[in-house]
Design a protein around this nucleic acid. Structure first.
Length: 443
RNA sequence: GUGGGUGUAGCUCAGUUGGUUAGAGCGCGAGAUUGUGGAUCUCGAAGUCGCCGGUUCGAGUCCGGUCAUCCACCCCA
């Protein structure tokens, strides 16, 4: 009879082993570096909020996915994103913060939805937002941040799709479909997955749209050609609509400014079929797809919301920002085998040649750590071959070996574990410099 | 929430029309004259066959439920 409890995790919740956690932490560091570089300041908020704070802010769907429960008579819920808590945070502290205010926030969020690869019930988001301004400059900057973020994560095969809800809304208004915006956009979003005819049929069934209406809409959304062409056509046909005109101009500015700022052509594209996002988006919207794994979905999305904080304060707090889906991107990189995973954060491995010299081994390790190089001393004086195998498997780059003869001579042997090349008789004082030089190399 | 696929040693998988002590490869551990690792060889550890229940003389093998995972819908990071 066993009274052991089966070790297990909840559906959609996962453990992270070192091989995955090391790159995950690295990603967080990169995101932090990029955000701070733009002047976004760090904040944090509680995982748990009063349910009323979170309910009804992201649409019906997000309400259903909320982890919500009664605790001590309080109706509470786990945050399902970082944007809504931020809106609450901003409304509460704006007098201290002043506007415009730029913040980044990285932490776990929870959604009780069905799981799939890259879709979890607990996952980290890395948000950045600028609030207190409606200036398109903030929208433009957000696109640049997303780009630099992806590049900072060593990715270059990705595309940032941008659109503007004003354009879509204006377009639908002109087509006489203003009342069914949400329904139509939901169908529209399926373009690319299902044939155009099916999209039209669905629009007709669900939103009562006519063939003439959907034809005109789809023609536009599917328009091919340069950004200038597409924008030009939009202007010509819908420029008289105030919303559309505003949206078109903001998109045009964004695309032009991105190029001027140095973003390579093709990294940011106009995509009129990008309609999604939570209910609160009102202007620019962004979605970022990996060229080699588009199916996993957007890994960094966001947009402009001009009235989100209006739910908590009378002060106008428009904003724009986006969120990196850390765990989804991590799953994607894992799938694409782009993680050169290591099970140790310390590049240097110090062989325990003989137990009597443990103090000397730790002395060397401390000397390396003092100059910022991680070093680990093997805990047992096992056979050297075994220690080497352990070291390479773990992902250590360099091994340091010293036995009685070496201590007599005051030297160390420095070994490149991957190349299996050893440099013998290195004076103790030169070891750190040599190690650093070797680590800088190929990586 | 709906529909479907999968679930056998750490990993990848075999397991015949249900029938005696459940297998392989890789990996792992020990060893092949006590200062050095990817080859070879020898030996070895390791599986409640996801979990619970049912049918049966007998179930990894059939049935039901459940959990997890993957895929589609939905939605999104």
């Amino acid at each position: 009879m066993s009274n052991l409890i089966e070790p297990r995790t909840l559906k959609g919740f996962r453990d992270y082993l070192p091989e995955l956690m090391i790159p995950r932490e690295w990603m967080l560091e990169q995101a932090r570096r990029v955000y701070r570089g733009y002047g976004f300041a760090p904040i944090d908020t509680p995982a748990l909020e009063y349910a009323e704070i979170l309910l009804g802010k992201g649409g019906e769907e997000s309400d259903k996915q909320l982890y919500r429960f009664l605790h001590d008579r309080h109706d509470v819920a786990l945050r399902f994103d970082l944007t809504v808590p931020f809106a609450r945070f901003a409304a509460q502290h704006i007098n201290l913060l002043g506007t415009p205010f730029k913040r980044y926030h990285m932490g776990p969020v929870w959604r009780g939805e069905n799981t799939q690869k890259g879709r979890y019930r607990e996952f980290w988001q890395c948000d950045f937002d600028t609030i207190g301004t409606t200036s398109n400059a903030a929208d433009i900057e957000a696109a640049l941040v997303i780009h630099d973020l992806m590049r900072g994560l060593n990715l270059d095969r990705f595309v940032i799709h941008v659109n503007n809800r004003l354009v879509l809304n204006g377009l639908l208004e002109e087509l006489g479909l203003a009342g069914q915006t949400a329904l139509v956009l939901r169908c529209l979003d399926k373009l690319g997955k299902v044939p155009r005819e099916n999209v039209q049929r669905e629009m007709a069934e669900r939103a009562g749209a006519t063939m003439a209406q959907t034809d005109r809409l789809l023609d536009f959304v599917q328009t091919t050609g340069s950004k200038a062409d597409v924008l030009g056509r939009l202007k010509a046909e819908f420029g008289t609509n105030a919303k559309a005109a505003d949206g078109i101009q903001r998109l045009e500015e964004l695309l032009t400014a991105a190029t001027t700022a140095g973003i390579p052509d093709g990294m940011i594209v106009l995509d009129l079929s990008i309609a999604r996002g939570l209910d609160y988006y009102t202007g620019t919207v962004y979605e970022t797809f990996l060229t080699d794994l588009p199916k996993i979905g957007s890994v960094c999305s966001g947009g402009r919301y001009d009235n989100l904080a209006g739910l908590y304060t009378k002060q106008a707090l428009p904003g724009v920002g986006a969120s990196l889906g850390l765990d989804r991107l991590l799953a994607a990189l894992e799938e694409l085998k782009l993680l050169n995973s290591s099970a140790t954060p310390a590049p240097v491995f110090i062989v325990q040649f003989t137990a009597e010299r443990i103090g000397d081994y730790q002395r060397m390790a401390r000397a390396l750590r003092a100059v910022g190089i991680g070093a680990e001393v093997f805990p047992d004086a096992k056979k050297l071959g075994q220690q080497f195998q352990y070291a390479e498997k773990r992902g250590h780059k360099i091994a340091l070996i010293a036995g009685p003869d070496d201590f007599t001579a005051g030297t160390w042997n420095v070994k490149d574990l991957a190349k299996r090349a050893e440099r013998k008789g290195v004076p103790e004082g030169d070891v750190a410099a040599l190690v650093r030089e070797m680590l800088v190399g190929p990586v």
